[in-house]
Design a protein around this nucleic acid. Structure first.
Lengths: 197, 197
DNA sequence: ATATAAACAAACCTTCATGTCTTTTATATT
DNA sequence: AATATAAAAGACATGAAGGTTTGTTTATAT
């Protein structure tokens, strides 16, 4: 009954969602076409139809979408420099300490080291992500504060898989940082004004 | 000419070193017995002789050793609480921004999510690592500052694989943190005194 | 209404990693 | 020196994963 385009979009969406879940919950090494299809209730025929080269076609699309989604969320708050962007993401971590999309990106990024073919296709996207997410261009070197908080952000995202993970403890840790290293003056106020508008 | 014990120790050492290198440079997904042996100039016969269950025997030993090594380095400075321990590790990051041993541990830790058999053997060690490395016991919840800096430490360790990694930039970022969030009063002085003694 | 092409399913083959076993070589023991 | 045992190499079997092909269903076009 559904149009072909709708069908296509839906199965692609299911495949991407299943892959994201696998990446976030089980890690890259646990990602196989069979498992993706099992989770998506599809067959490898469907996967290979939409992504002829398997993960090498699927993962770039997935990562691209995850970055696009994140990037739009950030852009909505109209940050004016890299530092403000990082603070936005840290705020996001307070609401949802388990950031499965960020974890998925990190997993693919780390896995691409050991797979040249994957690196070829992922690294350009990762490169663009630096600018689209963090607003850092290769021309202007990163400020120490922005880079430090970026490291903190990534470490915090991974922490939810630690054996001693405690949601409240992690939130308290981020809050402690936000208190000791507060965002640029007036930033929070501007956010609230934009929210109201 | 060498005694059997020496031979055994040496090959085990070679296998462990090769595995650590693979983990740090290529990531967990790139670790296979064949590659380990190739890198170690040995055959799978040797690997299976010393580690009958392959990675399930090898990785726990490797992780255990890496943690022991780190833990001894830290203990040598006689830290008196978790926070001092984290600062020690951050100092270490200043000298050597690429911490292959920490990366190897993180890789195994993240991979263990997707492999129950590996998790069984690794998680107890990871659990002990929280205490041995960070001095955090499950009884006493982590202080926000110690946990925050622990996240920063891990994020910084991963950062060296980013497409925009720049050694000097990372060092500057850590130094910025150390300036804004200085270690407990008198800690650095105490370290210098111990060094002199 | 029929032809065409897309979407999906299902089977096949190949490759690679692991598990297991046997054989050779080096060290230890008597 | 002869024998026993450990260390390492090598070969074989099994199973999982990816690559490929063919077949079937479903939507679109004429």
């Amino acid at each position: 009954m559904a149009t072909q385009i709708q069908r296509s979009n839906q199965t692609q969406q299911q495949l991407l969602a299943a892959t994201e879940r696998l990446l976030a919950e089980q890690g890259y090494a646990a990602v196989s076409e069979a498992r993706i299809c099992e989770l998506a209730n599809l067959t490898r025929g469907a996967l290979r139809h939409h992504y002829p080269n398997g993960r090498y076609d699927l993962l770039p699309v997935l990562v691209e979408r995850l970055i696009a989604r994140q990037s739009e969320l950030i852009a909505a708050a109209q940050p004016q420099n890299p530092l403000e962007r990082i603070y936005l993401m840290l705020f996001g971590l307070l609401d949802a300490p388990i950031q499965s999309d960020t974890v998925a990106i990190l997993e693919v990024w780390m896995a691409a080291r050991g797979d040249a073919k994957l690196g070829e296709r992922i690294n350009p996207i990762m490169n663009s992500a630096i600018e689209r997410l963090f607003g850092m261009t290769s021309a202007t070197p990163a400020d120490p504060d922005a880079l430090a908080l970026r490291c903190l952000l990534h470490g915090a995202c991974m922490h939810c898989y630690s054996v001693d993970y405690d949601r409240n403890a992690l939130v308290a840790a981020i809050q402690w940082v936000l208190e000791k290293l507060p965002p640029p003056a007036g930033f929070v106020e501007r956010l609230q004004m934009e929210q109201a508008a």
